[in-house]
């Protein structure tokens, strides 16, 4: 088949090249800064090890919690008609547009030891969320939950309702229908929701530092450790940044079918 190449406007070509360079230059610059000789010793240092462990634990827990509550939220938003639905949706998506540090401050006022909910919680159980690993989990869940809700809700709207009707008339309960029919059919959206949620949780900075603080070995995640290391140990900052870039690339590659390969 003969293909005639379409020539885009020259202005667009120039602007697009500038835009791509704007993203590419920092990544390449980072690679030039990596102290390859010290890579091993930095990666195995206590600070990096602690930060990586806390980041992984907190981001994976946050993804699990976001799935547990985000999927039901999305289901209710997509399938149930009720008054105030728009308000509920706006509320759930608020962390998406809220400056993360404001979110962290809000968490501190509400879930802190003297907070609205945190006070009674402490009196009843002795649990203190701020400045603990649980505080990190709460902070990163808060900012990453909307990604799960958006992914699942969009997929539910796009799914032909006939399949759920068919399942119902075959005698299936709504829960069975959801687990056996709906969920498998929106699996690609769920997987991309998982990746987006986890990536947001893994990279979280503002809410974490405001709510959980920056205690090495307890609440210091990778982004916080990078921020601290920029002042004291540029080599370590670069290596940790490299780790996060590699993680980001892995997520992108894993989702290539959904995001950047178009037939």
């Amino acid at each position: 088949m003969r293909r005639v190449r379409q020539r885009p406007p020259m202005l667009f070509v120039v602007l697009a090249i500038l835009g791509v360079a704007f993203v590419a230059v920092p990544v390449v610059g980072l690679l030039f800064e990596v102290p390859w000789g010290d890579l091993g010793s930095i990666l195995t240092s206590e600070i990096v090890g602690d930060a990586l462990r806390i980041s992984l634990v907190a981001s994976l827990l946050a993804t699990a919690i976001a799935t547990l509550v985000g999927v039901p939220i999305a289901y209710v938003l997509a399938r149930v008609e009720f008054r105030g639905k728009a308000l509920v949706r706006a509320l759930v998506l608020l962390p998406l547009v809220l400056p993360p540090v404001v979110g962290g401050a809000a968490l501190l006022f509400s879930l802190g030891r003297r907070g609205l909910v945190g006070g009674p919680l402490y009196d009843a159980t002795g649990l203190v969320l701020p400045f603990s690993i649980w505080g990190v989990v709460v902070a990163v869940t808060f900012v990453s939950l909307p990604f799960m809700v958006l992914s699942i809700e969009g997929a539910l709207h796009g799914l032909d309702r006939r399949f759920e009707s068919a399942a119902a008339s075959l005698g299936a309960t709504q829960l069975r229908t959801f687990m056996r029919v709906t969920m498998p059919m929106i699996m690609p959206a769920f997987i991309s929701g998982l990746a987006l949620t986890w990536a947001r949780a893994f990279g979280e900075f503002g809410a974490t530092v405001a709510f959980a603080g920056n205690l090495q070995g307890r609440t210091q995640t990778m982004p916080l450790a990078v921020f601290v290391a920029l002042e004291s140990d540029r080599g370590a900052a670069v290596v940790m940044s490299l780790v996060m870039v590699v993680v980001a690339v892995i997520v992108l590659v894993a989702l290539r079918d959904r995001w950047w390969v178009r037939a």
Binding site: D160, R162, A167, G171, T173, R180
Partner: peptide, 18 residues
């Protein structure tokens, strides 16, 4: 629908594709 015990062959069948 789940309690009506009606067998339906839907337009285009609506078999669960997965």
């Amino acid at each position: 629908p789940r309690d009506r015990r009606i067998g339906v062959v839907w337009q285009d069948a609506a078999l669960f594709p997965h």
